[in-house]
């Protein structure tokens, strides 16, 4: 499973880096830093609290550049905060970046149609991004060893509150960007369209 993740991540990374032009690097980096900072926000939900993943949004805003951006954020988290580890970097990047790419592919075009409701698209991206990530995390646990399957189900259940918050917050973000800075959602690298 570790190997599969590493291979998939490496493949996606090659494509993403080929599409990433030098001109876009400062922009991708600033946004990737913004996502890194945003993911540190503690959002209360019910009696507990969650941290946002925002991978759906990253897909919408960054397109393919989301893959290296997510990898960089995970490397930083692993080296300086001790979250995650070195060897699971590949799997983790895959589990977060593939849903981001899917959101970009499925919802990006919808978002660019005139008269779309930004909130709805954003909420869908949040929902899709996090639920797919949860599913993939559970799957990678379950597939690597059947002994983990019960734990995988419990972890999947802990994603439920996150799902709600992520959908509302991402919806609010995209609705906001739609009104205030639509260029952030529309103009992406030439290579992405």
């Amino acid at each position: 499973m570790l190997l599969t993740g590493a291979v998939v991540t490496a493949g996606a990374l090659v494509v993403a880096l080929r599409r990433l032009e030098y001109e876009q690097i400062p922009r991708a980096a600033v946004l990737s830093a913004a996502f890194f900072v945003s993911s540190l926000i503690t959002v209360p939900v019910g009696p507990s609290s969650v941290h946002l993943v925002l991978n759906g949004l990253m897909g919408l805003v960054l397109g393919w550049a989301a893959v290296p951006a997510i990898l960089v954020a995970l490397v930083l988290q692993a080296a300086f905060f001790g979250f995650g580890g070195l060897l699971v970097l590949g799997v983790n990047t895959m589990n977060i970046a593939l849903p981001a790419l899917l959101c970009s592919a499925l919802l990006g075009a919808l978002l660019r149609r005139p008269g779309t409701n930004g909130f709805v698209i954003g909420a869908l991206a949040g929902l899709l991004g996090v639920s797919l990530t949860g599913l993939m995390v559970a799957l990678s646990l379950g597939l690597s060893d059947p002994a983990y399957s019960v734990a995988a189900k419990v972890i999947l259940a802990t994603y439920a509150p996150l799902l709600l918050v992520e959908a509302v917050v991402t919806g609010a973000i995209v609705g906001f960007l739609w009104r205030v800075a639509p260029e952030l959602l529309f103009v992406r690298g030439k290579a992405d369209d």
């Binding site: 913004a34 609010a172 973000i173 960007l177 800075a181």
Partner: peptide, 8 residues
């Protein structure tokens, strides 16, 4: 959401 939007 608006806070993060503004940050972006």
């Amino acid at each position: 959401g608006w806070l993060i939007g503004m940050l972006l």
